[in-house]
Simulated scan of single mutants.
Amino acid sequence: MSNTSNSKNDDAETIDAETRRRAVRERYASIATDDTGCCDDSLACCDDTALDDRAEQLGYTADERDSVSSGANLGLGCGNPNAIASLDTEETVLDLGSGGGFDCFLAADEVGPDGRVIGVDMTPEMVERARTNVEKNDVDNVEFRLGEIEHLPVADDSADVVISNCVINLSPDKPQVFQEAYRVLRPDGRLAISDIVMTAPLPADARNDLDSLTGCVAGATTIESLRTMLDDAGFEDIHIEPKEESDQFIREWDDSHDVSEYVVSATIEGHKPAR
């Protein structure tokens, strides 16, 4: 059996791929259409104060929070991918699973008016919300496209940077996600991803629970498996760094388990070789 197949076995494969996609789409459609902006039950009333507190835990500065109009930050991430992306002006950035667009708008400010940011999300309601946020944030270098991150609606060799925030763990085919990211990156392009990694086997009831899956827990895979997927896709200079301090917010994700015993947030980086 190939290394890639072994990597896929780390996922909650007892739940079939179509069921997983449907559950994820339904959960995030509900979040996108909730007028309160409520992202999860742990954020109390999901008011601005709670969202600001969560953003600080994830590594966003007060200036970053305040630079984006309300409605884009849904408190759904597990890190700040822009903090590791080292974006330059005039670059093209692709955000996998862009949600309400918060990270896209931050990236747009970094790449400037001559740069470009593309967000891709598989949930129509979330794409609609993000497009509304384009008008609220008065930007013209950001666009949002409907599509699955395993089949990106983006041309080959067209992005300088691929970012993502706590989304790839939701995919039933992570190797395909990284192959697609490699395809769309220009030579010498780079990944800058925040996501969840598994540090210990989850209890069976959590791994087979759809709420745990859509809550960014049951779909987590190990650092070793992620490294194999990235290497198989062709990436070099792979660097995966767990963020132990993330247990401060991860333990709030599940009322029945302290999931911080099993998963942790991490930064995931890699480069596509220059030709």
Rank of each mutant, 00 (worst) to 15 (best):
V134R: 13
V154L: 00
D254F: 01
E236T: 14
G37N: 00
D63P: 00
I196D: 01
A12H: 15
D47W: 08
N3H: 02
M122W: 09
M198H: 05
A23F: 10
R251M: 05
F105H: 14
L170R: 02
R129I: 12
R186M: 15
M1D: 10
P124F: 05
A200I: 11
E224C: 02
S69Q: 09
A159I: 05
T214S: 08
L74A: 04
E224P: 01
R183Y: 01
D195N: 00
P242K: 01
A220R: 03
P113M: 09
T36N: 10
E90R: 14
V264F: 13
E224W: 04
E150T: 15
D232P: 06
S67A: 15
A159E: 14
G100D: 03
N165A: 07
P203M: 01
T33W: 14
L210C: 06
F178H: 06
D109E: 12
I193Q: 14
A55P: 02
D205M: 06
S69T: 08
A200Q: 14
T228Y: 06
V117Y: 00
S158K: 02
S30P: 00
D40Q: 07
D10G: 14
P175F: 06
R275P: 13
R207C: 10
A274S: 15
D254S: 13
D41P: 09
L226K: 04
G100Q: 04
S260R: 11
T19Q: 05
P273T: 08
D53M: 02
C39Y: 00
P113L: 03
C45I: 03
D66M: 09
A32D: 13
Y262G: 05
I163G: 09
S67G: 01
H239C: 10
G147F: 03
P242R: 02
V162F: 04
G234Y: 02
V139F: 01
S2Y: 09
S7F: 09
T228S: 11
G59K: 03
I196R: 03
K8Q: 15
Y182D: 06
N137V: 01
L202P: 13
G37P: 01
V139I: 04
